[in-house]
Amino acid sequence: MDSLVVLVLCLSCLLLLSLWRQSSGRGKLPPGPTPLPVIGNILQIGIKDISKSLTNLSKVYGPVFTLYFGLKPIVVLHGYEAVKEALIDLGEEFSGRGIFPLAERANRGFGIVFSNGKKWKEIRRFSLMTLRNFGMGKRSIEDRVQEEARCLVEELRKTKASPCDPTFILGCAPCNVICSIIFHKRFDYKDQQFLNLMEKLNENIKILSSPWIQICNNFSPIIDYFPGTHNKLLKNVAFMKSYILEKVKEHQESMDMNNPQDFIDCFLMKMEKEKHNQPSEFTIESLENTAVDLFGAGTETTSTTLRYALLLLLKHPEVTAKVQEEIERVIGRNRSPCMQDRSHMPYTDAVVHEVQRYIDLLPTSLPHAVTCDIKFRNYLIPKGTTILISLTSVLHDNKEFPNPEMFDPHHFLDEGGNFKKSKYFMPFSAGKRICVGEALAGMELFLFLTSILQNFNLKSLVDPKNLDTTPVVNGFASVPPFYQLCFIPV
């Protein structure tokens, strides 16, 4: 009986604490739906499609509103004006990374994606500088992407125009580009180590996009005490870190300090320079996690976009025909596509942009946080508050993009057929937390897609009208449904 009384008292205290925290903070924060004790607004949000729920709530509470995930307040920004004001106009104040408990377990605050403060700034600055020195957006990395595009075309030829699921092959190409940047090595598509790495990356994007992960991140005790797919994700990350550590040891034994070959060499050189400046942010643990982040951000996002792009091109054969006509006119058949071609191919450029806009790969991006107490639109948001960005509300804005739910390359073309930029184009987020590999991803999408369409016609196994382009999961990332196609050599 005594234990029951204690339990009831504990629960009562928890409920009172929950109510007090919510009521004391709500006077400062933007308005929002009334949260339930302990669980907050979790029942009012469709976990399978958070973005749709945010759109519905914005119609009631406006472009800036507050939700509670458990006891934790989260300020939501919906629509271009609110997102721009926060991420661009007040970029420094909104540059923090929001709480992501599962990532905390995986990387302990290291790396480039989930770190904060001085650690994040130094690692991000170093990573950007190193990638630029190796030619991100310049010639040397373009050579690597072109080489991988040629290998991709050869792998597709091996399908002999038979029906195939493109998931694996389209994942190999961007993964190999990242391998060449980090390890100075590309792998054969049949290499077992490479296959294991690909498998872990593919599993992780599916797990991260599941409703279960949303629950884990908002009720963090689940991570330590409950079984579930989150444990598989943590094991996959541990596998990748151990693999990278092996490569780091190989580099330490063979590195030429006067001739760095890749990202690992550059990081080890930085560690050597910083060894007298303790404590340094440049450690082996930081290198492991930064490399894992580059793999995660640079492989599955690009391969998922490529997979979605081919599905949309199957669905819209008239678009595919126009792209192939432009390829034939500008590039021809006797040389590989290059980035200089893009400025002469406005329709193809528009298609690449429209694919990214339409699929809305990361509907709410990753959570941000404010780095200080900030007054925002007459609300006071306390330091450390998590900020949720609705990228969907920007990419699918119906004023900027008429009929935003329709796939239409003319969203990025003017009346004369010239490519038209849009400030609403934010597939990689915006501001200080914009994806480090934005330029690389854009290069890969253009070169891989043009190389495929230069060499193959795409054949659907069903009537294009019957192809479903609805994402199968739409949590962290929008993942396309399973499909097969035939690559018919031109």
Rank of each mutant, 00 (worst) to 15 (best):
I50F: 13
Y68P: 00
I374C: 10
D143G: 09
G416K: 12
H230Y: 10
N378H: 08
I88N: 08
I264M: 08
P346A: 07
I169P: 06
V490G: 05
K383I: 04
H353A: 11
E104R: 13
L87N: 08
L366P: 03
E300D: 15
K72Q: 09
V113P: 09
V6R: 02
Q324C: 09
S53G: 09
H230S: 08
V330G: 03
K275V: 09
A238G: 13
G431K: 05
E272P: 08
Q252C: 10
R125E: 10
P35M: 04
K241S: 06
T159D: 03
L314Q: 02
V292M: 14
R125H: 13
F456C: 00
D2P: 13
L391M: 11
V248R: 04
L440C: 02
N289T: 10
K432G: 11
Q193P: 10
F94D: 04
V462S: 07
L29E: 02
I215M: 15
K28D: 08
E203F: 07
N398M: 14
N202L: 07
W212C: 03
D414A: 06
L233R: 03
F482W: 11
L287M: 07
C179S: 15
A321G: 12
I488P: 03
M426E: 04
K200T: 10
Q356G: 04
R150P: 01
G442M: 06
R21P: 09
S422A: 09
E325L: 14
F69N: 04
S51L: 04
K119N: 12
V113Y: 15
R357P: 00
G98M: 11
P101R: 08
F168S: 15
I205W: 08
T301D: 04
M255F: 08
L71G: 12
E328W: 11
S451P: 03
S286L: 11
G91D: 11
K158S: 12
L485R: 00
V60H: 10
R139S: 12
I452P: 00
F295E: 01
H368Q: 06
A106P: 08
E326T: 01
P402R: 11
I213T: 13
S343Y: 13
S451A: 10
V60D: 08
E85M: 10
G442V: 06
V153H: 00
P73L: 01
F428W: 07
I178A: 06
I205Q: 09
L306P: 00
P260L: 06
P221V: 07
A477P: 04
D262P: 02
I222D: 02
F94G: 05
V76R: 00
E93S: 13
K322S: 11
N418G: 06
D49W: 01
I74E: 00
P409A: 04
C266V: 13
R144Q: 07
D373M: 02
C179W: 05
K48V: 14
Y80V: 05
C266G: 08
I123F: 10
N418C: 12
N289R: 06
E85T: 09
K48R: 14
F114P: 11
P367N: 03
R144E: 08
R139I: 13
G417Y: 09
G296D: 12
Y225R: 09
T348R: 00
I50C: 12
A82G: 03
F407Y: 04
K247T: 10
Y379F: 12
I215G: 03
L57C: 08
T469P: 09
M198Q: 09
I88L: 08
E199W: 07
L362V: 12
N202C: 07
F187H: 07
V248E: 01
G32R: 01
K241P: 00
L440S: 01
A173T: 01
I99M: 13
L485I: 09
P317G: 07
L43N: 10
C172R: 04
K383H: 06
K241N: 12
R124N: 07
Q192N: 06
L485Y: 01
S422M: 05
L195Q: 15
E415L: 05
E246P: 03
V76K: 00
L313D: 01
T130A: 13
P404T: 09
R132E: 08
I215S: 03
V352W: 03
K200Q: 05
M443S: 08
L449T: 09
N398A: 12
S422L: 05
E122C: 09
V83Q: 03
K275S: 13
M198P: 01
G431T: 04
I112L: 11
A439N: 15
V83D: 01
N116H: 13
G98H: 07
F425A: 06
L458A: 01
T450R: 00
M269H: 15
V292K: 04
P404N: 06
S95C: 07
S12Q: 04
P166Q: 02
E281T: 09
L54D: 01
N398H: 09
R186H: 03
F412P: 00
L131I: 14
T55G: 08
A350R: 01
S365Q: 03
K273R: 12
I222R: 07
I178L: 13
K185D: 08
C10S: 14
R329P: 01
T348P: 00
K421T: 12
V153A: 01
F407G: 00
I488A: 08
R132H: 08
N196A: 14
C266I: 06
K138H: 11
